[in-house]
């Protein structure tokens, strides 16, 4: 049995696998003491799976805080972990992985051997990441999933040019002041993110299936938005938020 721990900037996730089968998964919000939180959710996952710590053959950590966690046997980067898991979950075929996380948005090209060929990540600022949507959701007085739900009922999405959180926030505030419908603003925000992701996708092969993982895949409407802009079919992986942790566990 192996454990994979993904210490992200927003959420910390833990997955325990037996062979390639998930037997337990836990999630918790990341906080000021990442190592403590990681240990806690590992314990919790062990409890859920009903096994002892000593039964774990291997613990692999990944994510932003991978080097902080001291119980691990190995660290891998999110990119490799996401690629590994996506390759396995999409039936061992070449694919293009979109991973929208809290702090990063990545697009990863995986070849037919399951290896990363090329990847792109956003720049150092939060533009185009989950964090951006979270901040915008606060402005619209909802949470990130509420934002997605609002967007689904949009009639005429507004055009938001900036994905810089600071500029976009003032743009949203001024739109609200002009009595623009919240639904249209939400759709506009999703479109802004989707456009960014579609641009990143355009750097890769055009004829491989696209899979979507990471916390961002849970946002309703984001997938459709990307599909519309990029014109490509996107498949959301099962339990998208745990994909990276799963990838760590099986690597």
């Amino acid at each position: 049995m192996k454990a994979g721990i993904d210490i992200g900037s927003v959420m910390t996730k833990c997955v325990i696998v037996e062979g390639n089968r998930v037997i337990a998964k836990t999630i918790s919000r990341s906080g000021p003491m990442p190592e403590k939180i990681a240990e806690n959710i590992l314990q919790q996952a062990l409890k859920n799976a009903g096994i002892e710590f000593s039964q774990l053959e291997k613990i692999v950590s990944t994510g932003y805080g991978r080097h902080i966690f001291s119980l691990n046997h190995k660290t891998v980067t999110e990119v490799s972990a996401a690629a590994k898991a996506s390759f396995y979950l999409s039936g061992e075929k070449p694919c293009l992985v979109i991973d929208v996380g809290g702090q990063d948005t990545k697009t990863i090209e995986v070849d037919r051997r399951g290896e990363v060929v090329d990847f792109l990540m956003n720049d150092k600022c939060a533009a185009g990441t989950g964090r951006f949507l979270e901040m915008m959701a606060t402005v619209l007085e909802t949470d990130i999933y509420g934002l997605g739900k609002l967007a689904l009922s949009a009639t005429k999405p507004v055009v938001i040019n900036s994905t810089c959180s600071v500029f976009a926030e003032s743009e949203v505030v001024s739109l609200l002041a002009h009595n623009e419908r919240k639904e249209n603003i939400a759709a506009g925000l999703l479109n802004a993110i989707a456009a960014r992701i579609a641009t990143m996708m355009s750097h890769f092969h055009k004829d491989v299936p696209v899979v979507f993982c990471g916390g961002g895949a849970n946002i309703p409407g984001l997938k459709e938005s990307i599909e519309k802009i990029s014109g490509r079919q996107i498949h959301i992986l099962e339990n998208p938020q745990f994909v990276v942790a799963f990838g760590a566990a099986i690597s």
Binding site: T77, V79, S80, V116, F119, K124
Partner: peptide, 19 residues
């Protein structure tokens, strides 16, 4: 301030090259 992020990127690049 972006040292961590750069490190993730370059480590992922290293893993890619090694594979």
């Amino acid at each position: 301030e972006d040292t961590g992020q750069l490190k993730t990127r370059l480590e992922a690049f290293r893993e890619m090259l090694e594979s």
